[in-house]
Design a binder for these strands. Structure first.
Lengths: 103, 103
DNA sequence: AACAGATATATGAAATTTCGCATATCAATA
DNA sequence: TATTGATATGCGAAATTTCATATATCTGTT
């Protein structure tokens, strides 16, 4: 995992918030992230594809839904970075979590 | 410190390697970074200006040289991210450190 | 097989980032 | 103050990223 490439993955609001939500909940499907972030489906799919392409997440199709999780082989330092960010920036994605609970 | 903005700062090779070198050594001046990374002066200066603009580093002029350090008010989580990256990706910037020692 | 819901991808335009080169600024010293 | 070494910035071109829209794919159901 090239650190610069990893940080490019985190350097977009849609991707970063998606990752933080996925890390917080353990997993999230596309329709959840659409609601949480209030964005269009192609946009979230394209950003998730980017994260998948670089080994940051894996996808898991269950029927019509596709669930995303952090990649289990993500290096420990990268997991630590995500977790550190998640625990210390709650206000950054709190509203997305709140929106998600309306489902 | 907006986490997405912070990661944008880390998402360029010149900026990331500069930051890791600065974190490793405590401080570094522009001419050191030019040698370490083998890049032109205007390029390194512009990237350092970007880091300064977003509160990631501070500059300290001593005579003709300008030394850069991590911003002392950088949030702890951000310092932890940089340090975690530095300790676990030594090969990523090892050659730059080696080049630096030739001075 | 036809259909509907959920997700992925193709494509071209718009926005942003990065770069190279020229030039400006700043500090020490002759 | 003229000069030199070190660093910063202005600017247009090139490269990269992001987006909206349309369309394709995949799955479960009728």
């Amino acid at each position: 995992m090239d650190p610069c490439q990893f940080y490019k993955c985190l350097s977009d609001e849609t991707r970063l918030k998606s990752l933080l939500i996925i890390a917080e909940l353990g997993e999230a499907c596309v329709c959840h992230l659409m609601t949480a972030l209030a964005i269009e489906q192609p946009k979230i799919s394209r950003h998730l594809a980017e994260l998948r392409k670089h080994g940051v997440v894996i996808d898991d199709r269950r029927g019509k839904w596709v669930y995303y999780q952090l990649h289990p082989d993500l290096p420990q330092w990268a997991k630590t970075v995500i977790d550190d960010t998640r625990r210390n920036n709650r206000p950054y994605f709190e509203q997305a979590l709140t929106q998600l609970r309306t489902l």
